[in-house]
């Protein structure tokens, strides 16, 4: 097997808040292969975004990260700014949920793009401009030459998101981290953006990490999924396995509780009881224990570790052989 593009092992992220220490990510390990699309699914506070914020040195000032994140064999966690500047936006780029606040509001779209090219690729003005317009055309923005000199607020939501994808792919990154890229978009535009990302991955062999709270988004795009809860990975495996044969009680409950086009509206949804975990006060055992229908004594005392349950499929649950 080819060496992974990105290898995370034993990652911990903590925040020091006024009310104490908050654990956002707890002992996280995974690998991302070349040209792979990895889906990371979790609710707010599951640590899915902070994982990559930490990896790219973008944590808030009160955050600290420990463990190891290797990009093509090179350690980048807590690396000096100079190293990260050569990687961020160049070899690893990010796409955010809210394009309006992620793009600089006072700069024309085109200038934001050429600036990036000037910094990472040392291109001349005309050449950079041509590359930028090409990238805008690549994400199917109509009349790209005109849009080149638009400000972000002049574009519609879907167009802005596509402009951000163009910006993210400009330097031909090896990894794209898409953090809820379609959450703020309407359904009809959402599928356009997802298809764009998928086409990109097939064309350029770029690895994509798709961070989302929506299992359905992952189903269409990713080959492998990682389900996170309370800062930990609870289950990981090939997307088909996870949907067909989920092994962790949280994944099972989550899949059951989502209304789909085939749910019978006559019956109540099997909702997961309780509230999401309190990150300032995580239990010593499994973070899902107090909402789990299969909970037993050991779950409350000891955190289960990730064990294989099938081909590339693992879960972190004490229940044997599994529910």
């Amino acid at each position: 097997m080819a060496p992974p593009v990105l290898a995370v092992s034993g990652l911990n992220v903590r925040f020091h808040t006024n009310d104490g220490v908050l654990t956002a990510v707890n002992d996280l390990s995974f690998e991302l292969g070349e040209g792979e699309c990895l889906g990371i699914v979790g609710e707010s506070g599951s640590g899915k975004s902070q994982t990559f914020m930490a990896a790219l040195g973008l944590l808030a000032d009160n955050g600290e990260a420990g463990g190891s994140v290797r990009f093509r064999g090179q350690e980048i966690l807590n690396a000096p700014r100079k190293v990260l500047d050569g990687i961020r936006g160049n070899r690893i780029s990010m796409i955010f949920q809210d394009a309006l606040s992620a793009l600089t509001p006072t700069m024309r779209i085109g200038n934001q793009m050429t600036e990036l090219l000037a910094r990472h690729r040392r291109l001349g003005r005309n050449e950079a401009r041509a590359r930028a317009i090409e990238a805008l055309e690549g994400v199917r923005i109509p009349d790209a030459a005109a849009r080149f000199s638009s400000y972000p607020f002049e574009l519609s939501g879907g167009m802005r998101q596509r402009a951000m994808i163009a910006l993210a792919t400009l330097c031909g990154p090896e990894v794209i981290i898409a953090d809820e890229p379609t959450t703020a978009l309407d359904v009809t535009v959402q599928s356009q953006v997802l298809r764009l990302l998928d086409g990109l991955r097939q064309r350029t062999r770029t690895s994509i990490v798709l961070i989302t709270h929506d299992l359905a988004v992952v189903a269409g795009l990713c080959s492998r999924v990682m389900i996170m809860y309370g800062g930990r990975v609870v289950e990981t495996g090939p997307v088909r396995e996870i949907f067909r044969n989920p092994r962790h009680p949280y994944t099972q409950a989550l899949l059951r509780s989502m209304p789909s086009m085939t749910t019978d509206p006559g019956t109540d949804l099997p909702a997961i009881p309780g509230q999401p975990p309190d990150l300032e006060n995580l239990p010593p055992g499994c973070p899902f224990a107090d909402r789990c229908e299969h909970v037993f004594e050991r779950c409350l005392e000891q955190m289960p570790s990730l064990v294989p349950v099938g081909d590339r499929h693992s879960k972190a649950c004490h229940l044997e052989p599994g529910p």
């Binding site: 908050l22 902070q50 808030a60 955050g63 992620a102 809820e180 990150l279």
Partner: peptide
């Protein structure tokens, strides 16, 4: 959404 966002929760 933005970089350097304060932590959740």
């Amino acid at each position: 959404s933005a970089a350097k966002a304060p932590p959740l929760g």
